[in-house]
Design a protein around this nucleic acid. Structure first.
Lengths: 244, 244
DNA sequence: TCGTGTGAACCATTTCACAGCT
DNA sequence: AGCTGTGAAATGGTTCACACGA
């Protein structure tokens, strides 16, 4: 009735794996820089601070790219991950809000390379409009709809102050953008077919605070009562979580 | 033999929940701004783009703070989340690398308020050293060890270029910092007792690329063969994941 | 012999469904 | 009547352990 279920790509990839793929991607890029030709799941796992079986399972979801007894070809594997992530395609990106954060984004490795093409920057501040950042001109945000008719962006990045974020989101949606990445500290409302993701610079800081206060609580517990030694694992200190 | 197992705090909180607590925290702060006195799990869930049962389970791990038939008291719940996250305590933070990203961090809501106190900024560039950002002076990174003896930081934030990140991490570890938040696009090596978390500004962008290319693939599939209509859920378009 | 790829077992997290309080 | 808090079921994700190929 339906097609063969094991088409190499096209297989359902769990969200958890999708989020790890960019991590592997970066590690492979670094390995490439240092001249490594092949890498084992073991080594990749150590660098990514995850379990080797997880690396193998993640990668096997993309296809069988390894060689038994040898490992994975670094360059080839990276190209396959790029393909799975879709960063071998061209995604026009607009960034709205060119303060320090917007500038940092434009200048960041991952934004201006690897599939993403920053086609325009937008701001509302006359001081900033007309400036060039990385040779891309900052336009008046009022011109965003007109710009989009010429060169429609796929992804919109919001790095405005919180107060402007919802309005910018509305504009992006009205010009047909269906993927929005929001750095502004504000909860946004968008239609259900729009993919909205948040990056909160301070969430990780708060997660650190959580584990740090657990550490302190454990340390105090230890000095007041003569409790168990702080063994890692089940009790004691919370297992340090791995990176996003 | 041992103490009662249901001490309100002190209960093990799953990592997945810890990461959502800052999200609830922000939402509650916004509700407070708009003057809401109480909130239901349903409403909180809608705003956080998660399931209501999940909200209730998450919150019940911190204690029984809701009122049946009414919901949660916004201000009280927020203070309890703050407590659980440890952001009611004082965490001295140093930031190393005062480029655009470092400045954005210093100026961001979540960094300079709510428990975190940016005690000093560091850079290696003589142009930048001596400058003040948000009234905090930028010091020479060479002075970091001396500074730490006076006013030891709990958390170190790395927002340097990739090339400097490992060296900065080594310095932080040598002065006793056990929680490091790394924004530099570089895999770092640290001892196992150091809590290291990464923030990669482009990971979310790559995740978007993944889902966007799935959308395109689905759209093409649909136009070439006369396949199934793109029902949300099992097949069709991948369920848009919720924010980190 | 080394290291991938993968069923199967295990563990964590999510969701359901409803008892119980206001 | 409305909404929380929570066992129990369902789902999703991780790890084990080993067959198999290079």
């Amino acid at each position: 009735m339906s097609e063969a279920p094991s088409d190499p790509n096209r297989r359902r990839i769990p969200e958890a794996t999708v989020v790890r793929l960019p991590v592997y991607q970066r590690i492979l890029s670094e390995l490439l820089r240092t001249g490594a030709a092949t890498v084992s799941s073991e080594r990749l796992a150590t660098m990514a601070r995850v379990n080797a079986a997880k690396v193998r399972k993640d990668l096997s979801l993309l296809g069988s790219f390894g060689t038994r007894g040898t490992g994975y070809d670094v360059a080839f594997l990276r190209s396959q991950i790029d393909r799975a992530l879709g960063v071998d395609q061209d995604w026009p990106v607009v960034i709205i809000g060119i303060g320090n954060l917007g500038r940092a984004l434009v200048n960041s490795e991952g934004f201006s390379s690897r599939g993403f093409r920053v086609t325009a920057l937008f701001d509302a501040d006359p001081e900033v409009i007309g400036e060039r950042v990385r040779s891309v001109e900052v336009l008046d945000v009022a011109e965003l709809p007109a710009f989009a008719r010429q060169d429609p962006p796929t992804i919109g990045v919001i790095s405005t102050p919180a107060g402007a974020a919802q309005e910018v989101a509305n504009t992006l949606i009205s010009i047909g953008v269906r993927s929005i990445l929001n750095f502004a500290p504000r909860v946004l409302t968008v239609p259900p077919d729009v993919l909205l993701r948040y990056v909160d610079l301070s969430i990780e800081l708060q997660v650190m605070s959580f584990y740090e206060s657990r550490r302190q609580a454990d340390a105090e517990q230890l000095s007041t009562s003569g409790g168990d030694p702080p063994r890692l694992g089940s009790g004691g200190v919370s297992r340090p979580p791995l990176q996003t």
